[in-house]
Every structure is written in C-alpha cells, then in structure tokens.
C-alpha cells in the first residue's frame, strides 16, 4: 500500500468525499477488471459503483496500514458474486465474454489462435473456485497475498489451489491435444 493510499483512506474515513474520490479514480480500473472477469456481465458498472459505496461505508472497519487495493477487491468480488447469484446465471458464463483480440490480426497465426482457444476452453471448464484463483493470479496479476484477501481465503489455500488448478488445466490441455 502506498503512503498516498494511507492518507486518502484516513481522510475518507473521517468523511472527506474528495479524498475518497481519489481512491475511486485510482482503483476503478482494477475493480472493473475483476468484476468483468468474475462474470458481472452487463451489471459490471453497477457492481463497481455498489462496491465503492459499500467500501466507503465499511471504512470505519478498515485496519489502517493494511493494503487498500485487495481489501477493496474483496468487496468487489463479493458484490460480483451477489449480482451473478441474484440473476441466477451460472458463473460458468463468466468467461463467455472473453474473446481473444484475434480479429485485429490480418494474417492470424492459426496455431497460436487455436492454442488460445484451447486454453480458454480449458479455463472455462474448470470449477469456479479453480478458475477464480487463476483469473486473480494470471489475468489480474495479483500476488498470492492479494489473491488470498480478494477471495477471502488463507494464503496456504491460494498456494495449494493454484497448483492444483494449474495441474487440472494442464490435464485438460493434454486431453484437447490428443482429441485433435
């Protein structure tokens, strides 16, 4: 956590809306990315907005000196899950919106595009818990500690679940290759 965060959090907690707006501006992009990857779909803007409002209300409980970003991301993750659950759509849809940007390439490298397709299919086929971890670690580039906080898990669980999810993904990729 940067010292600027510390200062902004302290001021926001004391009710300074300008200070909070600084935090909103700073963390809208990662919050939005997380909500999008976890499947917020068309609700993504509402989810981000609600998460920031909830986080503001929860600030009195924020432990000063702790990193703000993963604390906020946990609230975003919970909001996203609520939204997805609320509209009764399966989390499986989470990755449906993900489309590799292959259309930009006038001469698509077929093998690479195929590999990406296989990888995405593998990622989609994983159980939600496994997929969430991989999305946080590799798509959002969160550290193990940040992932743990975001998904409300112990760090040990993040470590073990990451390697298990990677192993499962590898297995599926092998099967895909054999199937071709």
């Amino acid at each position: 956590m940067t010292t600027e965060d510390d200062e902004a959090v302290r001021l926001a907690r004391d009710g300074d809306p300008d200070a909070y707006e600084v935090l909103v501006a700073r963390y809208t992009a990662p919050a939005h990315r997380l909500a999008y990857f976890l499947g917020a779909g068309g609700d993504v803007e509402d989810v981000v907005q609600d998460a920031f409002v909830k986080a503001y209300r929860a600030l009195p409980r924020f432990r000063m000196g702790a990193p703000f970003r993963p604390w906020l991301l946990r609230i975003v993750a919970n909001e996203t899950k609520n939204a997805v659950r609320g509209r009764k759509r399966r989390a499986q849809l989470a990755l449906r919106a993900l489309d590799p940007r292959s259309v930009d390439d006038p001469y698509p490298r077929v093998a690479e595009a195929e590999r990406r397709r296989v990888l995405l299919a593998g990622l989609r086929s994983l159980a939600g818990k496994d997929r969430e971890i991989l999305l946080c670690r590799y798509f959002l580039d969160l550290s193990e500690a940040e992932t743990a906080m975001t998904l409300s898990l112990p760090v040990g669980t993040v470590k073990s679940r990451t390697s298990r999810a990677l192993a499962r993904l590898r297995d599926r990729l092998d099967v895909e290759v054999l199937d071709v």
Partner: peptide
C-alpha cells in the same frame, strides 16, 4: 501462456463512477 492470454482479452473501458459514488 495464461499471462500471454490475458493480454489478448478485450476488456471494455472502465466506467467513470466517481460522480455516482459521490
């Protein structure tokens, strides 16, 4: 490969929620 895949994913522009949150 996962990290490389992440770079090819199109994510919509993040919304500006500042005014609404405020």
């Amino acid at each position: 490969e996962l990290r490389a895949l992440a770079d090819t994913i199109v994510v919509p522009e993040p919304p500006d929620v500042r005014a609404a949150v405020r």
